[in-house]
C-alpha cells in the first residue's frame, strides 16, 4: 500500500484510459471527445514514463512520451481547426450531425 511500484502507475493509467474511452463514447460534442482523447494520450504517456522509471531508468520511455506530447499538441491544433470548420459548415459541433462527407 505505501510502497509505490510499477503496478500502481499502470493501474492508474488504465483507469485514466478507460475514463478517456468513456468520455469519447458518451459525448456527442466534438470538443468533448477531444478531452477524452487527451486523457487517453496522457494515460499512454504515463505508462511510458512509468516503464522508463521502473526498468532501469531507460530513457527511451521518456523520449517516446515526449513525442506523445508533441503529437497531442499537433492533434489538438488540427482537431480544433476541424471542429471550427465543422461548426462553420453545420452550425453545430454535434458529431452525429456530421453525416455527409462533403462538409
Amino acid at each position: 500500500m505505501w510502497t509505490i511500484g510499477l503496478t500502481h502507475y499502470l493501474i492508474l493509467a488504465a483507469m485514466l484510459f478507460c475514463i478517456g474511452v468513456a468520455v469519447i463514447v458518451t459525448k456527442r460534442n466534438a470538443i468533448g471527445i477531444l478531452f477524452g482523447v487527451e486523457l487517453i494520450l496522457n494515460a499512454g504517456n504515463l505508462n511510458l514514463v512509468a516503464f522508463s522509471r521502473y526498468r532501469g531508468a531507460d530513457i527511451a520511455g521518456q523520449v517516446v512520451a515526449m513525442f506523445g506530447i508533441v503529437l497531442a499538441a499537433a492533434e489538438a491544433a488540427i482537431a480544433v481547426a476541424i471542429v471550427v470548420n465543422l461548426y462553420n459548415a453545420t452550425a453545430t459541433i454535434d458529431v452525429d450531425s456530421a453525416t455527409t462527407l462533403r462538409g
Binding site: 456527442r28 470538443i31 487527451e38 480544433v80
Partner: peptide, 28 residues
Amino acid sequence: IVYAGGTLVLITFGVMLTSRPGSDRQLV
C-alpha cells in the same frame, strides 16, 4: 508548458468559437 499552457488555450479557443446557445445535446 505545452499541454497546460499551450494546448489548453487552443482548446479554450475552440470552445469559445463554437459554443452556441445551449441547444446542443452534450451526451449520447
